[in-house]
């Protein structure tokens, strides 16, 4: 009895999954595998690679034994650390901005809540480059910000091409990635639980720490990871708002592939970036309680 239905289901499953599997195999798994291989090959003289094992692309960043062309240079470590610092700052700022906003939205009457949610989601669909450009208008030396400061009689702020400008740009672009998971968690929070906590004599702060924070923690973690990953690997924001002054891993990778033509080094950097992201995702999956496990 067991065979007939399951055989039919297996065939349907295989048929439905075949296109996506082929797509991912050809244009995702294989390219990543090739890049992994490239990252340990010798850079060619005029771009490309030579098929010889050569681990110094990693050595250049991590400080392993020196190769002939590549030398360990602390500047790469600094770039990595700067990327990490700016990404973490972005995470913290977006979290602080979005968390109260999520509560605000969740307490609105239904019709207005739908409207506000729509308004918050809409910029998510706006072109990234346009949104970065808006901040170029504001932050450039003759920009809106300095015009306003001038009107107020304050000294001009030289923010363009600084780390601050990059963080502002990253925050603006990634705001929805923080807001949406946070809002989902806040909305799921049953107001009766907060009332119960107050009823049991808990103060506002105690209630926040013991009830609200733990129950919205999955949303916080999800938002942080969704913001951190693109912030860490970003190069567009840094190249437009940070210029040559603020170089991040993303810019370094771009440079290796399009300007310096040192593909193995670029590939090694990309692999390091990927490894960092994978570690984060594994942490997320492991730390998030299984839906059934909660009960």
């Amino acid at each position: 009895m067991s065979g007939a239905l399951s055989a039919r289901r297996r065939r349907a499953l295989a048929g439905l999954l075949a296109p996506h599997s082929l797509l991912l195999a050809a244009f995702f798994v294989v390219p990543l595998a090739i890049m992994a291989v490239y990252s340990v090959l010798t850079p060619g003289l005029y771009g490309g690679v030579e098929w010889e094992f050569y681990p110094y692309g990693y050595g250049r960043v991590l400080g392993a034994p020196l190769g002939e062309v590549e030398e360990f240079d602390p500047v790469y470590g600094e770039i990595l650390l700067r990327s990490l610092r700016l990404a973490l700052t972005t995470v913290v700022v977006t979290l602080l901005l979005c968390y109260p906003a999520a509560f605000w939205v969740s307490r609105l009457p239904p019709r207005r809540r739908a409207l506000v949610l729509f308004l918050v989601t809409l910029p998510f669909f706006a072109n990234l480059i346009v949104r970065v450009y808006a901040w170029m208008l504001i932050l450039r030396p003759t920009g809106v910000l300095n015009q306003l400061l001038g009107l107020a009689g304050l000294p001009a702020a030289d923010l363009m091409f600084s780390e601050t400008a990059v963080v502002i740009g990253l925050c603006y672009v990634l705001l929805p990635f923080m807001f949406l998971p946070l809002y989902a968690a806040v909305e799921r929070l049953d107001p009766a639980l907060v009332q119960a906590s107050r009823d049991l004599g808990a103060g506002a702060l105690f209630t926040f720490r013991r009830v609200i924070l733990p129950l919205t923690a999955p949303g916080i973690l999800g938002g942080c990871i969704l913001v951190f990953i693109p912030a860490f690997g970003n190069f567009v924001v840094a190249s437009l708002l940070g210029g040559a002054k603020v170089m991040l891993v993303g810019n370094l990778i771009e440079q290796q592939f399009l300007a310096a033509r040192n593909w193995p080094f670029g590939a090694a950097l990309a692999m390091l970036l990927l490894a960092a992201v994978l570690v984060l995702l594994v942490v997320y999956v492991v730390r998030t309680p299984h839906p059934e496990g909660v009960r």
Binding site: M1, S2, G3, A4, L5, S6, R8
Partner: peptide
């Protein structure tokens, strides 16, 4: 017919339903 059986038989008027979706 929405679940497979691990063992045993179903017969409609003596004819097995095994291969009938």
């Amino acid at each position: 017919g929405f679940e497979d059986l691990d063992g045993g038989r179903l017969e409609l008027e003596g004819r097995s339903l095994e291969d009938v979706p």
